[in-house]
Design a protein around this nucleic acid. Sequence first.
DNA 1: CGAAGCGTTGAGTGCTTTCAATAGTTGTGG
DNA 2: CCACAACTATTGAAAGCACTCAACGCTTCG
Lengths: 254, 254
Amino acid sequence: MKDNKVVDISSIRTTCQNCGLYQLCLPMGLEEGDLDKLDKAIKRQHKVEKGEHLYKMRDAFKTVYALRSGSIKTYSTIENGQEQVTGFHLPGELLGLNSISTKFHTESAIALETSSVCEVPFDRLEELSKEIPSMQHHLLHVMSEEIQSDHCQLMMIAKMPAEARLARFLLSLSYHFSQRGFSATEFNLSMSRNDIANLLGLAVETVSRLFSHFQDNGLMTVERKHVLIHDLDGLMAVTTKCASQPLADDSSSA
Amino acid sequence: MKDNKVVDISSIRTTCQNCGLYQLCLPMGLEEGDLDKLDKAIKRQHKVEKGEHLYKMRDAFKTVYALRSGSIKTYSTIENGQEQVTGFHLPGELLGLNSISTKFHTESAIALETSSVCEVPFDRLEELSKEIPSMQHHLLHVMSEEIQSDHCQLMMIAKMPAEARLARFLLSLSYHFSQRGFSATEFNLSMSRNDIANLLGLAVETVSRLFSHFQDNGLMTVERKHVLIHDLDGLMAVTTKCASQPLADDSSSA
DNA sequence: CGAAGCGTTGAGTGCTTTCAATAGTTGTGG
DNA sequence: CCACAACTATTGAAAGCACTCAACGCTTCG
C-alpha cells in the first residue's frame, strides 16, 4: 500500500508546491492553506519564445509574472528613443510589480531565451494580500528589495570604474546562479554584450575589452556566451580596488 | 451660531486633515473614517535639527517617517567608506519604506535643515493596510514610484552627460517645489555642492563649473545656495540635447 | 555562399576627473 | 570685535578613462 499506488499522470499539474522555485518565488513563507489560494489564482506555464515580449512599456498593468525558467531582460525607452536596460531576471523573480503606481507598464520585458512564466492577475494578488498577511508583507518585501538593488546599481554606475562594474555584474550573476542550484563559476550569458554594456552604462567596446583583460589576467575564460570564472576572489578584488582607501584615519590611529 | 463658536486652542492638535500636505502624503485618497485610524497611529511633529540623523544605516527598521517640513538627505555608505547620496526629500515624502525587506535601514537619513516629521510605526501601518484597502494600495504605490524614480536616475547617470544631469536635477527640484506651492524658478538649495555632485555621480568641481556655464548662458543665476532660473525651457533643452537623435529613421521617411 | 549581426581590437578624441591654488563663508575663542 | 581655523565653493591646468570611429573576424541564417 506504500508504493504500488498508481499515479494519475493528469493529476500532476504544476503547483507551487512542486515547483522548484518554491523558496524564491511568491509562495515563499506561505502556509499550506494559503498556498492553495495562491495556487488557484495563478495561470501557469505561459511560454515565451526568445525575442518575444512579455509586456511592453505603456501596456496596461494587470498581471504580475513569475519567471519559471529562462531569462528576461527588462528595459525602458526614453524620449529620444534610447534604450536603458534595467535588469536581467532569472527564475523565481517577479516581474511587473514596479508598475503598480502607474497602472501601465513603465518598462518592457523581453525573453532572452525561450522562457516560461506564471501569470498572476494583480487584482487577485491584492485581494489575497488582504487575506494573507504574509503575502502582503512579501509583496512589499519584493519591492523593497528591488529598490535596494536599484540603489546598489546606482552606486555602482556613479562611483565605480568600468572594470569594477563588469566584475560586479559577473559576481552578481554567479551568485544568482548558485542560489538556484547552478554552478557559480560556469554559466552562459543569455544577454548580448550590448545589453550588458547598456545595463552598466558603458560602451559595447569597453565591455569587450574588459572581458579580454579579465581573461589576460587569468580571472576568467570567456568565449562568446560561455563564461568560466577561475578566480572569484580576484573578481571581488577588482570590485573593491576602486577608490583606494579614503577615510583611513581611524585604522592608523587606533 | 455660525461663527461665534469659541475655539478651544488645545483641541487644534495637528491632524492629517488639517495638514497642508494632505494630498501628497500618506492620507492621500483615504476616507474620513480611515483617516482617523491613521491619525491615531501617527506620532506627530518630531523635530530634527540640521545635521541630525533621522535614522542611520543598520538601525532597526520600525518606523516610517513622513516629512512635514524641511528637507532630508538619504545616503548609503559602502564597504570602502564611500558615501552615495540616494536622494533629497521634500515635505510630503515618506522615508524608510525601502528598508522593509531587510528589517534594518539600508540608508541613513540626515536633515539638511531644521525639519519636522511624523512617525508611523511600521507594524501599525501594516495592520492598517489590512483594514484599509486603499492604504495597502498606496504603500505599494509609493514604493513603486520610488522604483520608477530610481530607474530614471539610473538612466540619467548611465546615459546623460554631466550638463544634462545637473539641468535635470534643477528641473526636478523646480517641479517638486512648484508642486508644493513654492516658486518653480526661485528657491534655495539646502544641500551642498558636494551632495549634488554625489547624487549625480560627478565631481564637485564639475558641478561648480556647470553652474557657472549655465549662468554664462543666461539660463539661471546661482549665488551660493540661492537659485533663480531664467529659462526653464532652456534647461529642458539641455537635458534632451544629449545623444543627438539616434533612430531618427521614421521622422525623415514618413 | 553572401548578407547581416555580433564581437573584438586599434587609434584618436574628448569629457570628466584629479590635482592644486585661491577665495569666500562660517564658527569659535581670545 | 577681530583673528584664525575649518569648511565650502570656484577656477585653472593637466591627465586619464572611457567613448567614438573604424576596420576586421567570426557566427548565424537564409
